[in-house]
Each structure stands twice: as C-alpha cells, then as structure tokens.
C-alpha cells in the first residue's frame, strides 16, 4: 500500500502544546512515576519460601491424583473414560480383573505422562467414579523425563499428600446433591 493510496485514512496528531514543547512537565512526570514505583510496594512472591495463595484449590488444575476409597483401595474401575477423553493421550491404563467383589475391573497399572498433559481437566470430568482429580500442586518438576511419568503408586501418594488440604470432590458433591438433587440416590449406587 503506497502512502498516496486513497483508502488510507490519515489521523492528524494534535499539535504539541506548551508542555510538550518545553519538555519540563513531561520529564518531571516521567521521573515522578519512576520514583513512586522505586519506593512503592513490591509484587514479588519469594517463591520457594512463600507460596501463591490459590483462591479455589478445588477448582485449580494442577498435578493429578488417584483417589482412594474408604478402605484405602484405588477408586478407579479402569473404565478408560479418562484415557478416551484425554486430548493429549497422556493416560495409559492397563486393566485387570478386580480382586475385590464390588467391581469387575481395576487398573493394574495407571500411568500419566505429566510432560504430555495439558492440564485441561477433561479426565476429571469424564471420570464416573471421581477417581482421578486435579490437585492444586502447581510446581511439579523432575530431573529426567522418566521421573515425570507418574505411575499408580505415585498418583496415590499425591492423594495421600493432598487429601487433608483438598477433600475429594465427590464427598462434597454428595453432601450437596443429597439435599438438592433428585437423582442423588442414583449416585449413591455407584461402585466406590
């Protein structure tokens, strides 16, 4: 597009006023702002020692955990819904026949590649038994790629680590739906 193109609309700058011409108010204004910030409060959170306060830990999408039921067993029934829903294909489940009478299958191995995960939370929404949940742990790091592939034991240990600070969402949901939701009975029949 050339500068004489008729479709160009030229916007006229306002002419410089006295302030702009003398520079002084602008120079003073600039340095005043700077000095104000120089002495003002700082935004930095000194990270390892101080932590960001997460407003809603239950809504936060951080590292995954595999929940345990009341008897301390893994809650997962190896239905593969989370692996199917996962857009990053980072969940790998090997199902086996359940050793317990209350369900047919259980995950023999359950691994999540945290490096592939995009923390979208779809697995959590897909899960019918609230077995997989995202915690509010956000600073996960490791020294190797292998270390970042979380297996079942590791995911259960994340649950043990966070269960007090962040109770299982199903427990809360049950409490809420018991009084309000008509299909709460249906939920109660789900295998736990």
């Amino acid at each position: 597009m050339k500068s004489d193109d008729k479709s160009i609309k030229w916007v006229e700058e306002p002419p410089l006023g006295l302030a702009g011409r003398s520079y002084v108010p602008l120079l003073v204004g600039g340095i005043t702002t700077t000095l104000k910030h120089l002495a003002g409060p700082k935004m930095t959170v000194e990270s390892p020692e101080q932590r960001h306060a997460i407003v809603d830990p239950l809504g936060y999408r951080g590292v995954h955990r595999l929940n345990r039921d009341a008897q301390g067993r893994v809650k997962c029934v190896a239905c593969f819904l989370c692996a199917t829903a996962c857009p990053a294909h980072c969940i790998d489940i090997v199902a086996a026949e359940s050793p317990w009478p209350d369900r047919e299958k259980y995950p023999e191995s359950f691994t999540i590649d945290e490096l592939r995960c995009i923390f979208c939370g779809m697995c959590e929404e897909a899960c019918p038994v609230d077995a997989i949940e995202l915690t509010s742990l956000y600073d996960l790091s490791g020294k190797s790629r292998e270390e970042m592939i979380f297996d079942k034991a590791k995911l259960l240990s994340v649950y043990d680590q966070t269960k007090d600070a962040e109770p299982m969402r199903s427990a809360q949901a049950d409490r809420a739906t018991d009084s309000a939701c008509p299909d709460s009975g249906e939920r109660g029949e789900e295998p736990i």
């Binding site: 700077t34 910030h37 120089l38 003002g40 409060p41 700082k42 935004m43 930095t44 000194e46």
Partner: peptide, 10 residues
C-alpha cells in the same frame, strides 16, 4: 536491582 524496584519487583 534498581530496574526491578522500579518495576515493582525485587
């Protein structure tokens, strides 16, 4: 450090 303070950092 000065740059950080001016930008409200540490």
């Amino acid at each position: 450090r000065v740059a950080a303070w001016i930008q409200d950092r540490r």
